[in-house]
């Protein structure tokens, strides 16, 4: 195998991209952003990172079960968000 086969472009780009996203996220602390902007930056970078892993490295869309896999991931994401924000709503935000 030659180097090109060993290190395919997509993987290398994905890796560089994830490193860049990490650096951007780190900027939140380094540049002492306000809480709101900081959270927005973190949300965006974290979900983009997850997307990179899911599509570029985990090949979520490559097989005949693409639809089932994506439905599963979206459903899980829905449950995750409901669990997290629902808990915050009933445990913290709900009290006056």
């Amino acid at each position: 195998m030659n180097m090109k086969q060993l290190f395919p472009r997509g993987h290398v780009m994905g890796f560089i991209f994830s490193m860049v996203l990490t650096a951007v996220a780190l900027g939140v602390v380094v540049y002492e952003l306000s809480f709101k902007t900081g959270m927005i930056v973190l949300l965006v970078t974290a979900f983009m990172q997850a997307g990179v892993q899911l599509v570029m490295f985990m090949h979520a869309g490559e097989s005949e079960d693409k639809k089932a896999i994506y439905t599963n991931v979206y459903y899980a994401l829905f449950i995750a968000l409901v669990t997290i924000f629902g808990t915050l709503l009933t445990m913290i935000w709900g009290y006056q």
């Binding site: 599963n72 991931v73 459903y75 995750a80």
Partner: peptide, 25 residues
């Protein structure tokens, strides 16, 4: 097996989401 593992990962997402929900609370 591959599909089954993906579904297992779905369950893992729910598991970590619960831990995160607890953490934020």
């Amino acid at each position: 097996k591959i599909l089954g593992f993906w579904i297992f990962l779905g369950a893992e997402i729910a598991l970590f989401a619960t831990l995160f929900a607890t953490y934020f609370t």
